[in-house]
Write a protein that binds this DNA or RNA. Structure first.
Lengths: 207, 207
DNA sequence: ATTAACTTGTGAATGAATTCACAAAGAACC
DNA sequence: GGTTCTTTGTGAATTCATTCACAAGTTAAT
């Protein structure tokens, strides 16, 4: 399949959220124009994004809300339950296990890992905290699909190396570090410092 | 000034982090090639990014680490201290006040705001929790530069409207909602659900 | 002083993403 | 059934971002 831009996938994800909202309100159809207005983009963009995957609409009418939602879930791979492990049970890790969005979207947290013996064996919000030395054993391909990395920046590369060696192919990285991984491993970064500096830049150059 | 791409600003932010690391290790100069290797990009990209703002290097030698770091701080507007308010003292809000990155980079948290009377008047990590009805009074342009929005998705637009009315020009949004704001207000989104779905897509279409 | 080895800065070329614009198809109304 | 109004899907045009490629400047060695 043709390579799809990151930005496109992000927008699909946004469309799905709007569709779920519309679905909840009982709407049956939606136009690319309405979807665009909600997503802060253009109707042409919406149609182009969808066109990479097929033609799901009816001319003159728009898109069936439940059908398009279903198609997007399928495209985004949300038909199945993904299993997640969280590496690092510090403040961010703790906030993450409490985050409802995981379960809501079908992501299941299996366990958290830490090297602090005071934490190991305890649970956070029902999620067990295990010894980080068990990573290799637990993070094999069968057991976990996605690793969420919430360790200090200077430990991030070491831990991601272990995860990759264990067979993990997807990492959500909260550590402020640029991770080096093989090309078959996908990394998404959540980096607050970077976003803040983006705001600082914007304020300095427009404010 | 010419409009600078978002992606460029993000990379500048990354370069600055590497430079600070190099600075700490006592290195005096750095080449675009080395900077690129660290940032997972190319030396041409590094030089092009910097060239939008001037020419800071020496041919045959590279860039002076402290000088380039200083220039980047200046470009990114980090020369001054930005004042932040956090809207929403729930789980994410609580994790944010504890986050060290704010202070480290010169961002000062003034207060958090919530509508839960059980929380109002208390402090989190030394940061006072105030009544959210005080937003308009507190969030004027003199008092706060950046608002961090950490409220449920269905309250996000309402609260951002109040912030905008009060004069806020920069918002870091953690709510899973696409905010509509006037064009002179900058919004950066941190949306974990979207990143996770990006990983789900990648796993489904490559794994 | 000359040569060899580096490295920057930047136009030009390429590649990628977005927007335009319009034919084609369905819906609604009379 | 015909006319009008909507809205999709998509090539073409445009805009935007990245990469190429090389002249020009700097250092280091002999």
């Amino acid at each position: 399949m043709k390579r799809i831009a990151d930005s496109t996938v992000r927008r699909l994800s946004a469309y799905l959220r709007f569709l779920e909202d519309f679905e909840g309100r009982g709407l049956k159809t939606i136009s690319s124009d309405e979807l665009a207005r909600r997503g802060g983009t253009t109707s042409a963009q919406v149609r182009k994004d969808l066109s990479f995957f097929g033609s799901f609409g009816k001319r003159g009418l728009g898109y069936s809300v439940p059908e398009l939602a279903g198609r997007l879930r399928e495209i985004l791979g949300l038909g199945r339950k993904w299993k997640i492990i969280i590496v690092g049970a510090g403040k961010i890790g703790a906030a993450l296990v409490q985050y409802r969005g995981f379960k809501q979207r079908g992501f299941q947290i299996l366990a958290a890992y830490d090297n602090d013996s005071a934490k190991i064996g305890k649970t956070m919000d029902g999620i067990p905290i295990r010894d980080i030395s068990l990573l290799e054993k637990d993070a094999n391909k069968e057991a976990a699909d996605i690793a969420v990395l919430a360790v200090p920046g200077d430990h991030a590369q070491t831990q991601v190396n272990r995860l990759v060696a264990a067979g993990i192919k997807a990492v959500l990285n909260f550590a402020p570090a640029q991770l080096q991984v093989p090309s078959d491993v996908t990394v998404k970064n959540v980096n607050m410092a970077m976003e803040l500096e983006g705001l600082s830049y914007a304020l300095s150059n427009r404010g």
